Simulated assay, not measured.
Amino acid sequence: MALTMAKLTEEEIIRKPLMIAMKGHPATGKSTLAHALASTLKFPLIDKDDIRDSTFHLQQSSSSSSSHLLNDLSYEAIWRVASTQLQIGLSVIIDSPLSRRTHLDRLLDLAASTGAQLLVVECQALDQAKWRERLEGREKSWHKPTTWEELEKLVKGYSGCTEYDVGDVPKMVVDTTAPNLGVEELVSSVVDFIASSCGGTCA
């Protein structure tokens, strides 16, 4: 992995910032991979959950119908923060489900306005047993599914809208439940993907 990182940081000419957008359902390993990538690449990590968590008291004091509004506000906040970082030339990693095409369109607008290169890294958990074990074993959260039944209901509610075409945006899909494939190996493969996608134009 060290050789790959050296290639990315020394041979690639820094011309424009890079925006890595994570994608995937809850408990597919998005956040684990995003944190590891941010640590390796030294990119700011913008996590939608950090913003959503901060709305807990607003959620408690508002009507149940405000939940969608607060969730939309969380997305708006991460896009605003990302815009600021990109405008000053910093590359960023955005950790969110990216569950709807409209979210990708917003990132495309952001990339166009800041001159950034957008890449998508989608996390999938093809081993359903491991996925379920990961979901039910993680720390509980008030705004995330905590049981397999809740997750199935959430995915069903998407009605397939998460499976959209990203067009010309470079995209990598990783199976985070693949045997003998740890976080370090996943990070290495994503870094290779970044290096091959940038073509000498990214930070």
Results as ranks from 00 to 15, higher is better:
Leu181Asn: 13
Val155Trp: 01
Leu18Phe: 07
Arg52Ala: 01
Thr84Gly: 10
Glu136Thr: 07
Leu18Trp: 04
Glu152His: 07
Pro26Arg: 00
Ile14Asn: 11
Ser63Arg: 12
Ala27Cys: 06
Val187Ala: 06
Glu139Trp: 03
Ala116Ser: 15
Asp53Phe: 02
Val92Cys: 01
Ala203Lys: 01
Val174Pro: 00
Thr84Val: 14
Leu107Cys: 13
Ala112Thr: 14
Ala203Trp: 03
Lys16Gln: 15
Ala125Tyr: 00
Leu86Met: 08
Pro17Leu: 02
Thr177Ile: 07
Ser159Ile: 10
Val173Trp: 07
Lys16Cys: 10
Ile93Glu: 02
Ser39Ala: 15
Lys7Pro: 03
Val169Trp: 03
Gln117Cys: 10
Val81Phe: 04
Ser66Arg: 04
Leu90Arg: 11
Asp192Lys: 12
Met5Ile: 15
Lys130Arg: 09
Pro26Trp: 04
Phe56Asp: 10
Ala195Asp: 10
Ser197Trp: 05
Thr28Glu: 05
Trp131Ser: 01
Leu119Ala: 07
Gly115Leu: 07
Arg106Ser: 10
Asp105His: 12
Ala178Asp: 01
Ile51Gln: 02
Asp47Pro: 03
Arg52Gln: 02
Thr28Trp: 04
Glu149Val: 11
Met5Leu: 15
Leu8Glu: 10
Cys202Tyr: 03
Leu3Glu: 14
Leu126Lys: 11
Ser66Ala: 14
His57Glu: 15
Leu45Asn: 00
Gly160Glu: 09
Ala195His: 12
Gly137Ile: 05
Glu10Trp: 06
Val183Cys: 09
His35Val: 10
Val121Glu: 03
Trp79Phe: 14
Ser99Leu: 10
Phe56Thr: 07
Glu12Cys: 11
Arg80Pro: 03
Ser196His: 13
Ile93Pro: 02
Leu3Phe: 11
Ala36Gly: 07
Thr114Pro: 03
Ile78Leu: 09
Ser67Asp: 13
Leu41Pro: 01
Leu90Tyr: 08
Ser74Ile: 00
Cys123Phe: 01
